[in-house]
Nucleic acid binder design. Sequence first.
DNA 1: TTATATGCAAAAGCTTTGCATGGGT
DNA 2: ACCCATGCAAAGCTTTTGCATATAA
Lengths: 161, 161
Amino acid sequence: MGFILTYGTLAGMDASLRDRWLAQADRRLTGAGLRAGAARTGVVEFLARDGQCLLSAQEITDGVRARGAGSAASVYRVLDELFELGLLHRVDGRDGVARFEIADPEGHHHHVVDETTGEVRAFSDERLEEAIRAVGDRLGLRLTSHDVILRGVPAQAADVD
Amino acid sequence: MGFILTYGTLAGMDASLRDRWLAQADRRLTGAGLRAGAARTGVVEFLARDGQCLLSAQEITDGVRARGAGSAASVYRVLDELFELGLLHRVDGRDGVARFEIADPEGHHHHVVDETTGEVRAFSDERLEEAIRAVGDRLGLRLTSHDVILRGVPAQAADVD
DNA sequence: TTATATGCAAAAGCTTTGCATGGGT
DNA sequence: ACCCATGCAAAGCTTTTGCATATAA
């Protein structure tokens, strides 16, 4: 049995991203000769549903546990595998906790932290990507991945000079 | 007594950056009402000399210890203070270790990791900075800080398409 | 059937904290 | 003198690892 499962449509979700990711996850996991055990399946299912924003291993473990299976050890192991297979993005936070989210096979995004609330928002910007590509060229590197984290506070009218 | 100390010129070092940083560190530490104890002075001195590249708390502790004073606890405390005062950049690595380097009062840089060797290089790029400023504007944020980490492998002639 | 996946519990590693002592101003 | 800074040791966290058991293929 593979990792592709059926879901009802969830309100507010990008169903096509979820399906694309699930299809790719299935392909790569199967291709790597990995089996569909309870923990691995649980993590993949859970992330396909709820993994479009950064989630800690703790949160993922809770989510998987709520659906019956999973343990911290297995979740960490599965997260490592998925990351190595390029199926997840990983951001190491200032709090010493690693957070993961599903990697969109087509295009990606970055994160901005609102320092007044701690809230994390996603954004994407082609001009930024282009600038990064240019840097890679200038440095003579073939870039395999990159992270951008912005931190800021809402611009009040009073802030504008 | 302040935190500004005298040093001989070190080969391969950017003496002006070191001095600028030391001056600003002295100003901000004194301004914050902090005292020049052995550990704090040791960390500031050590970083002024050797802190232009990312260093772990462990490495900093070793460096400070080699000069007589310092303990892990104090180093962590001092590093936090310096970071809060905006005197250090901090990067949280994939290995779960936080690394620090002195923040240049004028201009800053980012890092690129050579995935074949693990080696970290610094770079700066005005076009990238400009793109980031534009993103902040577009999102309605006043950016307080940002990190960029690139990962890649040396571009071989064969890679070029 | 056979190698792999899982889960518990213990271990490991970085970082923080409590507390008594030493030191700056 | 007074309060801050320091250092040791213990505690707190996330993450990793060992090992016996369960399970996918």
